[in-house]
């Protein structure tokens, strides 16, 4: 009898959980549905009350208009190039750093780690002007370089996550590799990188997202329209006077969709990666 009621309460509890989670999921998704719905509306439908969730005609022309007004294909290509290079740079440089900080032992190692952590508390806007001056001196303005090159020089948060993950890889593997005559680089290349795939996927996606969504970097460094990115195109649609909401939302969908697909494809890897980093203070 007790066991039965226990089961029943377990069922009720689960039902309640599903109800709460579903309600929450609706709150999370509704703004996106509104975004897609608005992007397919005729201008006069956007402010109708009560709100229209399913437009009378699906106006796919809105999307054509966005591509017509600004070179969004070019923006897409540029954004993908930048985000791809940034991701590659972060993966390469941060895995090297994280490897050294987790698997090698040398003087000053922990100091470097703490300095790196401390850099997370530097407010970004203040370094904007000095870094701009450096980029200008290097004659890198109006190229992808100011956005891409720093990624090849490490970063605090990805290094932190990767270090946590690498520390959990059994050390016996290193020793076995040393027996086989591997150098430190050999351990990095043959042992740590292959085993670190889930964590690398996680870092990769985070970096890709960051570069894809970056607004201020492109605003400041990319002058020529041929070199600009999606977020800049999107910002142009937020009008100076009035906003054409249906076009703005169509542009938003165009910017969001690729990153959404990237996430859905890497989603399994991604969650697994964070799970396995097992962040501990």
């Amino acid at each position: 009898m007790r066991r039965g009621s226990h089961k029943l309460s377990r069922r009720l509890f689960l039902l309640l959980l599903y109800a709460v989670l579903t309600a929450g999921a609706v709150v999370m998704v509704a703004p996106f549905l509104w975004m897609v719905s608005t992007s397919l509306k005729a201008p006069h439908e956007t402010f109708m009350l009560p709100p229209i969730w399913i437009p009378e005609d699906f106006r796919f022309e809105n999307y054509a208009e966005v591509f017509d007004r600004l070179p969004f294909f070019r923006f897409l290509l540029n954004t993908a190039t930048i985000a791809g290079l940034v991701t590659f740079g972060v993966l390469l440089s941060c895995s090297l750093t994280a490897f050294a900080l987790s698997r090698l032992r040398f003087r000053g190692r922990d100091l470097v780690f703490y300095i790196l952590l401390a850099t997370m508390i530097i407010p970004a806007p203040v370094t904007l002007v000095p870094i701009f001056a450096i980029m200008r001196r290097l004659e890198w303005t109006n190229t992808f370089l100011p956005l891409v090159v720093p990624a090849f020089f490490g970063g605090a948060f990805p290094v932190f996550l990767l270090r946590q993950f690498f520390m959990r890889i059994p050390r016996d593997l290193d020793e076995a590799a040393v027996m086989d005559g591997c150098s430190a680089f050999g351990i990095y290349w043959r042992v740590i990188l292959p085993l670190g795939k889930p964590a690398l996927a996680t870092i990769g996606l985070i970096s890709f997202m960051g570069a894809w969504n970056d607004f201020f970097g492109p605003l400041i460094y990319l002058y020529s329209i041929k070199k600009q990115t999606l977020t800049l195109g999107l910002a142009t649609f937020q009008g100076y006077y009035a906003t054409d909401w249906h076009l703005l939302m169509a542009a938003t969908v165009i910017v969001t969709l690729p990153i959404l697909l990237a996430f859905l494809f890497s989603q399994r890897f991604f969650v697994e990666g964070i799970t396995m980093t097992g962040i501990k203070g």
Binding site: V129, F132, L219, S224, L232, A235, T236, Q238
Partner: peptide, 20 residues
């Protein structure tokens, strides 16, 4: 060469003007 600024015109123009 067309150089459109999206969003914050004054920030972008000031950085570029000040940076020569």
């Amino acid at each position: 060469e067309i150089e459109p600024v999206a969003g914050d015109v004054t920030v972008a123009f000031s950085m570029r003007l000040a940076g020569g």
